[in-house]
Amino acid sequence: MSHLLEINNLSVKFHIFGGTVQAVRGISLNLNKGETLAIVGESGSGKSVTSKAIMGLIPSPPGEIATGDILFEGNDLVKYSKKQLQKIRGKEISMIFQDPMTALNPTMKIGKQIMEGLIKHQGMTKHDAKKRAIELLQLVGIPNPEKRVDEYPHQFSGGMRQRVVIAIALACNPKILIADEPTTALDVTIQAQILDLMRDLQKKTGTAIILITHDLGVVANLAQRVAVMYGGKIVETGTLDEIFYNPKHPYTWGLLSSMPKLHAKTDKLLAIPGTPPDLSNPPKGCPFAPRCPYAMKVCTDHMPEYTEMSSTQRTACWLLDERAPKVEPPATIGVGGSNND
């Protein structure tokens, strides 16, 4: 079966003063129609760069897609010209951003910002586009849309602005919606509303979502499949249940352990000791080895191959090699606590 989006061996490099940063190092991913794929990982793991690469928004220079291809409905977006990409962006693939306070143009009316894409991609007249903009505002749950369509961003609260950003992204019924940390900048109460909204909208429109986040609570809420990124590589992928209840990679264990739990006996937060690798000088072996409590000699020298745990779960870790000692995941990863539910 062919996927809606298929990323093969994608590498993204940034040539900066004093060296080259390899932000994304040969990742492969796929996305099916209507599903939600979460890409999780900490800051600097390459998740946002991956999303920018799909949108064709890697600034070049200094950025460069070094290898790999991004197949959207079978066509390689990496080979697309600027003009071709502009036809895809906002129409087939669109994006919502982390910070709604800065993602909207402060001097342009909300309605006009929604209408732009409609006029460009669907050739609507101003009148029709405005009608559609009002519909979209209604759809994302903004009260009194006929009036608010003529207001400016500063007249909206953070949560309302994020709804507007979502309305802009959904304007042309895209096949893929990339949500880059869509709730990070919002209050917790508003976060839940926005997540509910995204889930509702996905049901209504059938859009596939790529959810970029570091918040496992958000992942549990929205995603069907999860890819865990670390040091520019995908260290583990699987279905939501596999990642939460049967994780195999020590980094995934660490992520799950560091999630605050509601009924925890201690009031101490668990952190993964150490810092992420320097991607201007990436490690030869597994990027997580320096922080991994189970690291062996082989880990620092050779990147492990993927081990197929099931038809859907793949993990890159030497512990899964038959010669490795058997290691049990720590008890702290239990998903007992609820977060954002």
Partner: peptide, 12 residues
């Protein structure tokens, strides 16, 4: 600014 990226992401 971020809103420039938003504008680019619209395909303008």
């Amino acid at each position: 600014q971020d809103y420039i990226v938003t504008a680019q992401a619209k395909g303008l």
